[in-house]
């Protein structure tokens, strides 16, 4: 039996080219992508590849240079601003210099395309605002002044505002940019769960490669020069697209561990380490960070971790032996040895 993929795209682009009109500069072109209902998609790419330009074009905030964007089966260019606003909402990187507005009032502004001429909230609007605040985990912030919120709290309120707009598609431009790691994980998990629970499509751009690998249903990779590639994160790792998009002189993507490693400094030698457990792991970590190649084979330089109170590191190299009380001093002494 053949499995038919469920196709109910919220957004499709056809041969889309994005960039600037005056002067005309194409940032990325031949973009063909689609976003399905309930899908959490991360847009990745190096700085300058055009993530923000693509995001702005998809959100209808700047016109495409070529090709077209279709939202819910209709061309974006043919829809009125209000029609678009009822299907698509955004979280931008713009500073909100908003004055005195409570989080709840800010979220209520998301009802803009649904309310009457003066913006009066009906019962239905009130319900939508409450739901959005809860769904974004911002209900406890409702009565706080937006200007006094932390970055993470403000981001949740802005997500709630976008949700209150009740769109089919939510587009976020680097929503995790200024957040610390726990907050980033929290926001990403929140968005993924929202996509799965509500059936909304969510697209976000991010620089957080590791987190995107873990959370996204699908990745869109926008390399510096070249076509947009999409697929499950694992697909893109296996076909080398991920590695290709982010290769640089200083670091490379390790497809075995799914992490970025700094490229080893040339000329640094192999070192073997004997020891166990956590101490051995972090010693190897430090050596790799310093640019040494850690090997299990016999080598000219050997480090023995001596457990005890206090722990020490014994370096044996070309007959010379040195004791180091910390990893910091171990690396420093190796640096000295290496320069000989």
């Amino acid at each position: 039996m053949e499995i038919q993929p469920v196709k109910d795209p919220v957004l499709i682009t056809q041969n889309l080219a994005v960039g600037y009109l005056r002067p005309r500069r194409v940032v990325a072109c031949k973009i063909n992508m689609s976003l399905e209902r309930g899908e959490f998609v991360c847009l990745l790419g190096p700085n300058g590849a055009g993530k923000s330009t693509l995001i702005r074009t998809l959100a209808g905030m700047q016109p495409p240079l070529n090709g077209r964007v279709c939202l819910m089966g209709k061309a974006l260019a043919d829809l009125s601003a209000t029609e678009v606003a009822r299907m698509l909402s955004v979280v931008l990187t713009d500073r909100i210099g908003i004055g005195i507005v409570s989080a709840r009032d800010l979220v209520a502004l998301g009802r803009y395309p649904h309310t009457n001429w003066i913006g009066r909230l009906t019962d239905e609007d009130e319900q939508a605002v409450l739901w959005a605040l809860r769904a974004a985990g911002a209900a406890h912030l409702a009565h706080r002044n937006v200007a006094e919120l932390s970055d993470g709290e403000r981001q949740k309120v802005l997500i709630a505002r976008a949700l209150a707009q009740q769109p089919d598609l939510l587009i976020l431009d680097e929503p995790t940019a200024f957040l610390d790691l726990p907050r980033r994980v929290e926001i990403m998990a929140l968005l993924r769960n929202l996509a799965h629970a509500t059936g909304k499509a969510i697209l976000l751009s991010t620089h957080d490669l590791a987190l995107a690998l873990r959370c996204a249903d699908r990745l869109c990779l926008l390399p510096m020069d070249g076509a947009l590639q999409t697929g499950a994160p694992e697909d893109l790792i296996l076909n080398g697209a991920y590695e290709g998009a982010f290769q640089s002189e200083g670091a490379r993507f390790d497809a075995d561990t799914g992490a970025f490693v700094l490229n080893a400094h040339l000329g640094r030698s192999a070192i073997s380490v004997s020891g166990q457990g956590r101490a051995a792991y972090w010693t190897k970590h430090a050596l790799e960070r310093a640019g040494f190649r850690v090997t299990d084979a016999e080598s000219a330089c050997h480090i023995e971790i001596r457990e005890g109170e206090p722990r020490s590191w014994r370096v044996e190299r070309d007959g010379a032996i040195r004791e180091c009380p910390s990893i910091y001093e171990l690396i420093a002494s190796l640096g000295g040895l290496n320069r000989d």
Binding site: G60, M61, S80, A85, D94, Y112, I118
Partner: peptide, 24 residues
């Protein structure tokens, strides 16, 4: 002025957000 109340509220969020909510 009373007719402009709703657009002005949207503009509190900045022009980009206001545009994204359907304001010309």
């Amino acid at each position: 002025a009373f007719l402009c109340v709703k657009p002005l509220n949207a503009l509190l969020l900045g022009e980009n957000y206001a545009r994204s909510m359907g304001l010309n």
